[in-house]
């Protein structure tokens, strides 16, 4: 018989040096609907599949704007994402107010990482149960980051998190060479939409369940919902 005694809290290491509570938090991401992020040398794009609780309910927001140059999409516990995005908004404001400076995407990633790490080393709390794709355009160009509840942050050309995200990832890996060269933001969005299709099961993309965001040099972070996504269906 198997029994795991080492997964009760975040302050217990397993005999092999693993933190099960943190690993379970990573599982929570897979419960959320899929979201895809990708970037070229000019733009960064987010594409997300929204879910509704039932026929009559509205769709859960998947993309959150943090500043004119920065935003994120989420997979997992949406309330946790709101905590993290509010934190990023505060940090963006602080940077603007005190330094007249855009918060760099790299710095944003480190801030999230350090905040998440705290929840994994002390008793009483739990790790965040959400994965984020953070995109932004700063002084060094467009960036895409993947955030995990463990506090790990990765900078990628393309990524996908959430249910069945492996399909999108595999697709992005295959077309990596092509999409990093794309100049036109709409073309880049199309690649993102195509990627997210690889993760669909029963769903079909509609104006109601597709959410898109893009950011670039002369393009502030903009979310496209509803009728605005029709051209990409």
């Amino acid at each position: 018989m198997f029994r795991n005694n080492y997964d009760g809290d975040t302050v217990t290491f397993s005999p092999t040096g693993r933190l099960f509570q943190v690993e379970y938090a990573l599982e929570a991401i897979k419960q959320g609907s899929v979201t895809v992020g990708l970037r070229s040398s000019k733009h960064a794009v987010l594409v997300a599949l929204k879910r509704n609780a039932d026929e009559l309910s509205s769709y859960q927001k998947k993309i959150i704007k943090c500043d004119e140059h920065l935003g994120l999409s989420l997979a997992g516990l949406a309330p946790d994402a709101r905590v993290l995005s509010t934190y990023l908004r505060q940090q963006c404001n602080y940077s603007k107010l005190v330094f007249n400076r855009k918060l760099s995407v790299e710095k944003a990633g480190h801030l999230l990482s350090d905040k998440a790490q705290k929840n994994t080393q002390s008793y009483g709390g739990r790790p965040y149960g959400v994965g984020l794709l953070v995109v932004g355009y700063d002084n060094s160009g467009p960036h895409l980051l993947e955030f995990q509840p463990s506090g790990n942050i990765l900078e990628l050309y393309g990524s996908a998190i959430g249910a069945r995200s492996q399909g999108s990832k595999t697709y992005l890996e295959r077309v990596l060479k092509d999409f990093t060269e794309i100049e036109d933001v709409n073309e880049l969005i199309k690649v993102g939409v195509e990627a997210i299709r690889q993760s669909l099961k029963d769903e079909t993309l509609t104006v109601d369940n597709l959410s898109i965001a893009a950011v670039g040099k002369d393009l502030p972070f903009t979310v496209y919902d509803g009728e605005l996504v029709r051209p990409f269906l």
Partner: peptide, 14 residues
């Protein structure tokens, strides 16, 4: 070292 008593799920064999 140290991977012998661990199964596929990462659970520990008692």
């Amino acid at each position: 070292e140290g991977s012998a008593t661990q199964d596929n799920e990462g659970d520990i064999v008692l």
